Amino acid sequence: MHSARARLATERDPRRGGGPPRTRVRLLHSDWPLMLRRTLLAERAAVIDWAEREATATGVHLTAGGAGPCGGDRLGLEVRVGAGSTLVLGEVSATVLLPGPHGEESRLHIDIRVEAGGTLVWLPEPVIAAHGCRHRTRIHIALAPGARLLLREEVLCGRYGEQPGAFRQRLRAVVGDRPLYDQELAVGPDAPGWAGPAVTAGHHAIGSVLVVDPAMDLPTSPPAGLRSGGGGAGEGTVMPLAGPGLLVGSLAPDSTTLRRRLDAALDDILTGVLTGRPAEGLSRGPRPVSAPARG
Rank of each mutant, 00 (worst) to 15 (best):
L8A: 01
G249T: 15
A166C: 13
R24P: 00
V88N: 00
L282G: 01
V187W: 00
D263G: 13
H102L: 14
Q169G: 10
L108P: 01
D13H: 02
H29C: 03
P223H: 11
M35Q: 14
T95W: 07
H61C: 12
D177A: 15
S3C: 12
P192Q: 03
M216R: 10
D31K: 04
P292G: 09
L270H: 05
D254P: 07
V187M: 01
P197Y: 14
L75V: 10
R148P: 02
R287N: 08
G231D: 08
S283C: 09
R5D: 08
E115M: 06
H2Y: 14
C157R: 02
G207R: 09
A279R: 05
D182E: 11
A166F: 03
T95K: 07
P179D: 07
T58M: 00
D254W: 11
A51D: 03
A291H: 04
L8G: 00
L89R: 00
V209T: 15
E162T: 12
R136K: 11
G118I: 01
R26W: 00
R170N: 12
R26Q: 02
T137M: 15
D213H: 13
R136H: 14
R159I: 03
P214W: 11
E154C: 10
S228K: 06
R152D: 03
A252G: 14
A215W: 11
L251N: 10
S208E: 13
I48M: 06
V47E: 10
G90D: 10
A116E: 15
E104M: 05
V60T: 06
A64I: 03
L120W: 02
G84F: 12
S208P: 05
G84I: 09
D177K: 10
I112R: 02
L97G: 06
T10Y: 00
R138C: 07
G17T: 06
G72A: 12
A242G: 07
Q169Y: 04
A142Y: 00
G90A: 12
D190F: 00
P253L: 14
V248N: 09
P222H: 08
E105Y: 01
L226C: 09
G118K: 01
A195L: 04
R80S: 15
L246G: 11
R259Y: 10
L97P: 03
P33Y: 01
G76N: 06
A291N: 04
M35W: 10
D73I: 08
G196W: 06
L241E: 09
A6G: 11
A186V: 00
A45C: 02
G232Y: 14
G132A: 08
A265I: 06
G236T: 08
G59D: 05
L28M: 13
L40G: 15
E105L: 06
A55S: 13
I139G: 01
G188I: 00
A83G: 15
A42L: 03
A147D: 07
V47T: 12
A242R: 15
E125L: 11
E104D: 15
Q163V: 10
R284S: 13
G161T: 04
H203K: 11
P244G: 14
P164A: 12
D213G: 13
R107W: 08
W32L: 13
R134P: 04
R15G: 12
W32N: 07
G118A: 09
V114K: 01
L143C: 06
A67V: 09
A55D: 02
